[in-house]
């Protein structure tokens, strides 16, 4: 019996990091919430702006530096000691490994994921303080972004919403 209730739940996700591994959690949660009929707003601030900056969004990286996780993929362990992780090319290598694993799970790349989210009705906003700091303008941002707003506007947008900070 279909007993799913419609919801008036609202979710605001603040994305403040621009590394590949910190970009996905926010987008996965946003997309999952939309699939559940929840109203979703994402606010991109500081390094999180890379996720919606045209020239960066397809090139987010993962670095193993300072990450004690051994990168166990099933039986394969690709532990990279910190002393080695800083060598040239290591970030690109680790990034392509993560991307390969994400692709196996049929996860979209960041721009496609953002498109899925906006197509599903999710709203994207850039933080004014951060765009000012990085000297970014609306034309530098992914076209699905609704606008650049300040922190007080965010308070209005997030009224009655549950907030997740990433």
């Amino acid at each position: 019996m279909w007993d799913e209730k419609e919801t008036d739940r609202k979710l605001c996700i603040i994305c403040s990091k621009g590394t590949l591994d910190m970009a996905y959690p926010g987008l996965v949660l946003a997309n999952a919430a939309l699939m559940e009929g929840i109203d979703v707003t994402i606010f991109f601030t500081f390094w999180g702006l890379d996720m919606i900056t045209k020239r960066e969004m397809s090139n987010l990286k993962f670095t193993p530096i300072g990450n004690p996780h051994k990168m166990n993929f099933g039986n394969r362990t690709i532990g990279i000691p910190n002393a080695v992780a800083g060598f040239p090319g290591m970030t690109n290598m680790a990034t392509s490994m993560i991307k390969k694993e994400m692709d196996k799970l049929e996860f979209p790349e960041i721009p496609e994921f953002l498109e899925m989210i906006t197509d599903a009705g999710g709203k994207l906003y850039a933080c004014r303080l951060s765009t000012d700091m990085f000297q970014l303008h609306e034309e530098d941002l992914y076209e699905g972004v609704e606008g650049i707003v300040g922190a007080t506007d965010f308070m209005e947008l997030s009224e009655d919403a549950q907030i997740i900070f990433i």
Binding site: M35, D119, A120
Partner: peptide, 25 residues
Amino acid sequence: LRRLKVAAGVPTKDLYELFPKKPAK
């Protein structure tokens, strides 16, 4: 929904219009 978009060629927007609010379920 991603698979329906990529493999079946049905855009995300259409999926939400055809099966509103909780499309995957």
